[in-house]
Simulated scan of single mutants.
Amino acid sequence: MVILLKRRMFAIALGIMPLLAEANQLRVMALDEKVAKSDIVVIGTVVGIDPNVDSREYIPKYAVVNVLQSLKGLPGKAINVQYRGPIAEEDPVCCVVGKNYLFFLKKIGETSYVSTNHRLGVYNLTDMK
């Protein structure tokens, strides 16, 4: 009886494992959905990185971005873009000072934004070939 119960528990655990393994995967948004869910879509240059040296993972980190061209919305000439947050899988692959990026962003403060589709909402234009 105990062996049968252990086998059933093992089978249940194996059935749940694929669900747990996919928990941190990001859903890929289509381009039209990214644009629709974004407050702004801009091309900009990273001109600075948040000097906050706090190493705690849950403290957001920001980059200062000079907006070169706005494709949607009316951002200021410079905006703050969160590039590090409490969930590593959601961090965009960004931000190197001097590089240009295409940003799909949602507003989270007066002049602060976060990627609309996490790491899939910011594209490095400088290194494209």
Rank of each mutant, 00 (worst) to 15 (best):
P75W: 07
E110F: 12
L71R: 06
E110V: 12
K99L: 09
P60G: 08
G48K: 08
T45F: 05
S55P: 08
L68T: 13
N52Q: 02
Q69P: 00
V46N: 02
E89N: 15
A78Q: 15
C95T: 06
V46T: 15
N100C: 01
P51M: 10
V97N: 03
S55L: 13
V47R: 10
A63D: 05
V65C: 05
P60W: 03
P60L: 07
L74R: 14
G98N: 09
V81T: 00
I108D: 04
I49Q: 06
V67P: 04
N52K: 09
L105Y: 08
S38R: 10
L102E: 07
L102F: 07
C95R: 01
D54Y: 03
A88C: 09
K37H: 13
L74S: 15
G48W: 07
A78C: 02
N66D: 15
N80C: 02
D91P: 03
V97G: 04
I40M: 04
C94D: 01
R84G: 01
D54T: 06
G44H: 10
N66M: 12
V65A: 07
P86V: 03
V41W: 04
V64Q: 15
V42E: 01
V65G: 00
G76N: 04
A88Q: 13
G98R: 04
T111Q: 12
Y58S: 13
F104Y: 13
L71A: 06
G109P: 02
Y83N: 09
G109Y: 03
V93W: 08
K61S: 10
P86N: 12
V42T: 11
P92D: 09
D54R: 01
I40N: 07
D91K: 06
A88Y: 13
S55H: 11
P75I: 10
P75D: 11
K107G: 01
P92L: 09
P86E: 11
L71E: 01
I87H: 12
N80R: 12
D54E: 08
P92S: 00
V46D: 07
K72V: 08
L74V: 15
K61W: 04
G48R: 10
V46I: 10
P51R: 13
D50M: 03
F104S: 04
L105C: 05
Q82F: 04
N80H: 11
S55D: 13
K37T: 10
E57T: 14
G76C: 05
P75Y: 05
I40D: 00
C94E: 04
Q69T: 13
P51A: 14
I87E: 14
V65P: 00
F103H: 11
I43N: 04
K77S: 15
K37S: 14
V97H: 03
S70F: 03
V47P: 00
F104A: 08
I40A: 06
N66F: 02
I49W: 00
G109Q: 06
Q69M: 13
I87Y: 13
V47C: 06
V65M: 03
A78T: 15
V42L: 07
G98W: 05
K106R: 15
K106L: 10
E89V: 14
G73S: 03
T111R: 11
R84M: 11
V67K: 07
S70R: 05
G76S: 06
N52R: 11
R56P: 03
V64Y: 12
L105I: 01
I87M: 14
D54M: 03
N52M: 08
Q82T: 10
Y101W: 00
V46S: 10
V42Q: 02
D54K: 00
G76D: 02
G73R: 08
L74E: 14
G48L: 02
E90T: 12
C94W: 06
